[in-house]
């Protein structure tokens, strides 16, 4: 198995607060890795550091053999890391199709003059891109909503559209930040199947932050548990479930109880 993402000793400090403390993880190609932990454990901070929104205080991030530690967010995305956001961030005034269209901009490799003069090349690339986007939205089950405003979609569809937008980048690695947030048990079951399907179809590696334990336990091959920025456990779902430190972090330790 090939390593796709390798994070070593990642540290992020905000002033005196250590949001991520010496975090290390290695993702193998084609696996789903879970990141869990109580609120404020630093899960989203890790996402934001991988994607370049935050500059790490220390440590390295390697993606497909390339160092991406201090890259800008758009450079990280161009390397092939797509992401979704915990609080949905769609281009809400724009249509569903446009949301995906925008994310496919790297496939539209014409220059400014071709666009302004409407050269042949422009038309061809745009048509090809549009067809690809519609195809992608079909796979995600949003093809009957192409011209609807993204902001007016129901919540579940907005989540799906965010995933569609991330997939339009043709990522190798997909970072999902609480994809099951606000979903009930049935919906999250559906989501698990949906993610598995996408993973196979697009040959993805997935790193996800999630609070729904049933989702995490059923989909992730390996899980990392964080608490106050520190990694307190890493292993398979079984190992995590029986880990004493994890139980303490979630339910409170003996000395923390009083």
């Amino acid at each position: 198995m090939k390593e796709i993402l390798k994070i070593a000793n990642l540290t992020k400090k905000f002033g005196g607060v250590c949001a991520i403390d010496n975090f290390s993880v290695t993702l193998e190609e084609g696996t789903v890795h879970g990141l869990i932990g109580p609120n404020g454990a630093g899960k989203t901070t890790i996402f934001n550091t991988i994607t370049g929104i935050y500059k790490p205080t220390g440590g390295t991030i390697e993606f497909m053999g390339k160092d991406i530690t201090n890259k800008k967010p758009y450079q990280v995305a161009q390397q092939g890391i797509g992401r979704t956001f915990q609080n949905i961030r769609l281009f809400s005034q724009l249509s569903v199709l446009e949301n995906v269209f925008i994310a496919g901009h790297m496939d539209a490799d014409y220059d400014l003059f071709a666009a302004i003069l409407r050269l042949n090349k422009f038309g061809k690339k745009e048509k090809y891109l549009r067809e690809n986007c519609i195809e992608l939205l079909k796979i995600l089950g949003l093809s009957d909503k192409l011209n609807e405003k993204a902001g007016s979609l129901p919540y579940g569809h907005q989540r799906k559209l965010e995933i569609a937008r991330a997939l339009a980048l043709r990522p190798k690695l997909l970072l999902l930040d609480e994809p099951a947030a606000g979903m009930n048990r049935d919906e999250s079951k559906e989501l698990v199947e949906f993610i598995n399907e996408l993973k196979e179809k697009f040959k993805l590696t997935i790193l996800m932050v999630e609070h729904h334990m049933d989702v995490v336990m059923s989909i992730c091959r390996r899980i990392t548990v964080l608490n106050f920025g520190k990694t307190i456990a890493e292993g398979t779902a079984k190992e995590i479930q029986t880990n004493k430190l994890v139980r303490e972090a979630y339910l409170g330790g003996e000395d923390a109880a009083c």
Partner: peptide, 28 residues
């Protein structure tokens, strides 16, 4: 023509949600 091309779409993406625009690889 400019606005109805990827250039214009990228501008609109920045208008709507700059962080998301960055996350889909747009050099904002």
């Amino acid at each position: 023509n400019l606005l109805n091309s990827k250039y214009g779409r990228n501008l609109k993406a920045i208008r709507e949600q700059e962080i998301a625009a960055d996350a889909v690889g747009i050099d904002t």
